[in-house]
Design a protein around this nucleic acid. Structure first.
Length: 287
DNA sequence: AAAGCGTGGTC
DNA sequence: TGACCAAGCTT
């Protein structure tokens, strides 16, 4: 049996029961889950996704509310620009697609905050299309199984042909393969300590057959967080999320000591549309 | 095309 | 303890 087939079979018994994978979940719900899952772990997404689905079950529901509501409901998932873009995507779905999430990849990619990965994930998971779906998990699986390397490099165009080479020919199994290979990367072929003993393709993994060599390329550098503008922006937004009314700049001072950095970050939040200044100069989440 | 963008859990 | 990591996108 080909590797791709083995991965699909493995998924049948090993898959997590995630709420956005249940039958009857529509493409809108899938889109929301995918955007939330961009760089944020499943465990933190789950409760927020449930709240969003109860509150805004259709794109029109989300499109109708002010950004402030959306930013607050995003909570501390991180990268709050995603919340803004998701709302903008909902507006675009209403305006351009009659309120129905489009099913074709180019139309999906044209939505704010939807890139190569998310567009195909929605087409595949939301609409059952046999689309190649490549995320960080899949790239890692490909690096090991196909290329014998311990770690994946950056995303590249050839990723799609890599996945295609493993994909089952049967349409239905091809569709399921896309979730399955992601799940394999998330549960078994993980970054730090892969669980090769339970891997369905352990006997034909190029990396393992090569003796599991350590990563040799340049170390991928991890982003700093403490002291960066990202942390300061997060602090400022924290204050504004909690404030029932617009606040003056003095109310933002406790968020960060360095006035220069604080001011720079407030400006960038204004530029991003995550913060708004009222006519009398107070700061608030955008209405 | 490299850098910026949040947050919290893990080892 | 702090580096590393988590279903990327945008500019």
């Amino acid at each position: 049996m080909a590797a791709g087939e083995a991965i699909v079979d493995w998924y049948v018994t090993a898959a997590r029961d995630l709420p956005w994978r249940r039958p009857g979940v529509d493409a809108w719900a899938v889109l929301v889950s995918e955007v939330m899952l961009q760089q944020t772990p499943v465990a933190r997404v789950e409760p927020i996704w449930r709240e969003w689905m109860a509150r805004w079950p259709t794109p029109a529901d989300l499109a109708a509310v002010p950004p402030a509501d959306v930013i607050r409901a995003w909570g501390k998932l991180g990268y709050p620009r995603r919340a803004l873009r998701l709302r903008e995507a909902a507006v675009a779905v209403v305006e351009r697609h009659g309120g129905v999430v489009p099913a074709d990849v180019p139309a999906l990619e044209a939505l704010p905050g939807v890139g190569t990965y998310t567009a195909r994930a929605v087409a595949c998971f939301g609409y059952g299309q046999p689309q190649p779906v490549v995320d960080t998990n899949v790239r890692r699986v490909m690096a090991r199984v196909l290329h014998g390397r311990a770690e994946a490099g950056n995303a590249r165009a050839a990723d799609l042909t890599d996945v295609a080479s493993l994909t089952p020919t049967d349409t239905d199994r091809a569709t399921r393969f896309s979730v399955a290979v992601m799940e394999l990367g998330a549960l078994v072929c993980v970054a730090r300590v892969p669980r090769c003993a339970v891997c369905p393709v352990r006997d034909r993994c190029a990396w393992r057959l090569a003796g599991s060599p350590a990563h040799d390329g340049p170390p991928r550098r991890v982003q700093k967080f403490a002291g960066t503008d990202r942390q300061v922006r997060g602090r400022l937004l924290d204050v504004l999320r909690a404030a029932p009314e617009p606040v003056d700049s003095a109310a933002l001072e406790p968020a960060w000591d360095d006035a220069v950095q604080r001011s720079r970050c407030l400006d960038s939040l204004l530029t991003d549309g995550l913060v708004e200044q009222t006519a009398d100069g107070l700061f608030t989440l955008p209405a």
